Simulated scan of single mutants.
Amino acid sequence: MSNASLSQNKLKYLSAYSQKVQDQVSTMLAMDSLGEFIIKKYPNVHNIKNDKLLRQYVLDLKQRHLKKSAPLSKVIYDKKIHVVNNALGLHTFVSRVQGSKLKSKNEIRISEMFKQAPEAFLEMIVVHELSHIKEKNHDKAFYQLCEHMLPEYHQREFEMRLYLTQLEFKGAIY
């Protein structure tokens, strides 16, 4: 695929980045070097392949960074999440009145596509969704919490976007 063709097929995961960055990624795609770049930096996929292991992984991160936050009622991989919501993970918060009390439930759903990804990308998505327990909006406080939990959060997010771009244009690399 040529750079001109890539430019016409918008790099949707990188649309917020500068044209220079998008051009560099287009060149890497055209030269079939984007996948190599990702594999060199993240050579292995994780072994967190089922909901039980994912739940434990999420709870371990939550315990390390958000000890006093609300509990999670559900943590699962969701095969519909990427297609239906155009998202990679979802945090849902439901409040219900039970008698005279207000009960809330927090759930985290991670796109099933992350079963076959480097742990660094799974960790970035989990940190993002855990941050929503305390900060509902994507604002300054939200991203500060993400960076507190994962100091290289923004770099990981960018590289995860590169990974998604590779998947979209060239297919799986692992």
Rank of each mutant, 00 (worst) to 15 (best):
F169R: 03
P151K: 13
D23C: 02
Y163N: 05
A70K: 11
E135Q: 10
A70T: 12
H82W: 12
F121S: 00
L122P: 04
D139K: 04
K170D: 02
N9C: 14
M124L: 10
A4V: 01
I133S: 08
K62Q: 12
A117I: 06
K101T: 11
Y153M: 13
N50R: 09
L122H: 00
K40R: 07
V25G: 02
F169W: 02
F158T: 00
N47T: 05
K103V: 15
F169G: 02
T165D: 11
D60N: 14
K105S: 12
L102A: 09
Y153I: 15
R156G: 06
H82A: 15
S7F: 10
I110Y: 04
S131G: 12
N106S: 10
I48G: 02
A141E: 05
H65F: 00
Y163V: 11
S104H: 14
I38E: 09
T27N: 08
F121C: 02
E123Q: 12
N3H: 14
T27P: 00
H138Y: 13
V75M: 14
F121N: 01
M28A: 10
K136S: 08
Y57D: 05
M1S: 04
C146I: 05
I108V: 01
K79M: 10
V25R: 04
N85F: 15
I39L: 03
L88W: 01
P118V: 06
V94M: 13
H91Q: 07
I76T: 10
K134D: 13
Q116C: 07
E123D: 10
S69E: 06
M160T: 07
Y42C: 01
S18G: 11
M149C: 06
V94K: 15
R96Q: 09
K12N: 12
R96W: 02
S95D: 13
Q155W: 14
L90Y: 09
S18E: 06
F158C: 02
P151Q: 13
V75K: 07
P151E: 15
S131Y: 08
I81R: 15
L90C: 09
F142T: 11
L130F: 02
A30G: 02
K67F: 07
H82I: 13
L72S: 09
L54A: 04
H65A: 06
L130D: 01
H138K: 01
I76S: 11
M124P: 03
A141R: 14
E36A: 13
M160Y: 04
K74V: 09
H148C: 15
A4Y: 05
N86H: 11
K20E: 04
H128T: 03
L54K: 00
V94E: 14
K80T: 12
K115W: 05
H128C: 08
Q24S: 10
L54R: 01
Q24H: 08
N106V: 15
K79E: 13
L54V: 00
S131D: 14
D32C: 08
T27D: 03
S69M: 08
A30I: 03
E168H: 07
N9M: 14
I39A: 08
Y13M: 14
I125R: 00
F169A: 05
F37Q: 03
S15R: 08
E112D: 06
K136C: 03
H65Y: 04
K67N: 07
F158R: 01
A87P: 15
R96N: 03
L150Y: 06
L150M: 10
E107V: 06
K101N: 09
N50T: 08
H132C: 10
V21E: 04
E119G: 00
S2E: 07
I48W: 06
K74L: 12
Q22H: 01
Q144D: 01
K134W: 10
N86Q: 07
R55S: 05
